[in-house]
Amino acid sequence: MLSDSGSSASPGTIPVTLTVNGQERRLRVAPWTTLLDLLREELDLTGTKKGCDHGQCGACTVIVDGKRINSCLALAVQKDGARVTTIEGLSSGSLHPVQAAFLEHDAFQCGYCTPGQIMSAVALIEEGRARSRDEIREHMSGNICRCGAYANIVDAVEDVLKGKSSSRSSSVREAAE
């Protein structure tokens, strides 16, 4: 929680500076607050989802300093000085190519795992580890989709990898950095 939230009950707060979606945020955060809860409850960035709070489902995936992580498993105070990109920071105006590919390939249904899937896919593409459909499947397996959109998720990621789905913009790299 933020120091200015008025709560007298926090077990002491710690100053933390985060760059969230390109914007520097100076915050005071309780040591028990996860990065996920900070994003959702304090910064109103509810695009990042809580599916299990145990690092088992991937719905909370965000990109921190270029790497995809489960934000439910990170305490916010551990990430002092980090650059955090959430689904809300992936695009401005037009959709990011991965977002556009998810839309085109119907790579989601209920939409709840979708931000995590997209952030994971953006980072995976940057990791350069996925060259085949089987590799996409393997490296996207930390993100559960209960609606079962997996086949379409693989299609969407493959499409972006092949550079088919509009031109792959530099924003992919930016977001992953």
């Binding site: 509810t46 695009g47 689904i87 809300e88 959709l95 977002q99 998810f102 839309l103 989601f108 931000p115």
Partner: peptide, 9 residues
């Protein structure tokens, strides 16, 4: 509803 879902809105 796709644009809202892929942007986190």
């Amino acid at each position: 509803d796709g644009p809202a879902k892929v942007t986190g809105a």
